[in-house]
Design a protein around this nucleic acid. Structure first.
Lengths: 110, 110
DNA sequence: AATATTATATACATTTATAAATAAAATTGA
DNA sequence: TCAATTTTATTTATAAATGTATATAATATT
């Protein structure tokens, strides 16, 4: 495991998994990110990120039932590991601390 | 200008520039990031990020006086542009909003 | 069989990490 | 004085990690 920190997109994927809880899989994660950020997200990008995050130990996965709705392969459901939660907290904490030190002048620039 | 959002490291570089104000240049930025994050930072990584961020319009730069202390080249001093401040705010806002939606269970996982 | 839904694989682009080279300016000391 | 040295800094080159897009596969419904 090399990179000890999260990429920008990886972090958002982790957050989406946390929010979705038992319903976090490729497509629902994509939708969640799109609605939260307003930016279009490619499904392949999500799967690649999920795979890497699992390899790094930030996520774990299991197969769900084949979808009840229409068709499709079995969903692969993801959950945060304690290590993943820790990484999220650390990333946010560092930035919060830096934000708090930004001079007001900069902060209020338009 | 392609990538519309900030990389993880780019964001930290911008924050360091904001904190350092009139004294933001390669070496001081590196030191600031190291002390804020506790992780070692390569000076070349900082310079490439600064260059990219300037090209994207998030930063602008000018030359400072040659150092008063011993020897050395002129420093290239950086400041945030309004566009850079906006990008920082947006990035933090999206994540704060997502954090707020994380179920408490996840949040308090150790 | 065609369609809808989902996952996976592959390829390529961009960002970040690392190391080494180059440049500029002040000090040192003959 | 002035060339060698020291200090400070930027630039360049390359590798690794991360981000994005496209193509392919699997499975159920219509």
């Amino acid at each position: 495991m090399k990179g000890t920190y999260l990429g920008e997109f990886e972090e958002i994927v982790l957050l989406a998994v946390g929010i979705l809880r038992d319903e976090a899989y490729g497509v629902s994660i994509r939708n969640e990110i799109e609605s939260q950020t307003g930016r279009p997200v490619n499904i392949g990008a999500v799967h690649t990120a999920l795979h890497r995050l699992e390899a790094k130990g930030y996520l774990k996965s299991r197969f769900g039932e084949a979808t009840e709705i229409r068709g499709g392969k079995r969903k692969r459901l993801f959950v945060l590991t304690p290590y993943g939660v820790k990484a999220l907290k650390l990333a946010q904490q560092v930035r919060s601390q830096m934000w708090a030190q930004l001079p007001k002048v900069v902060f209020h620039q338009k």
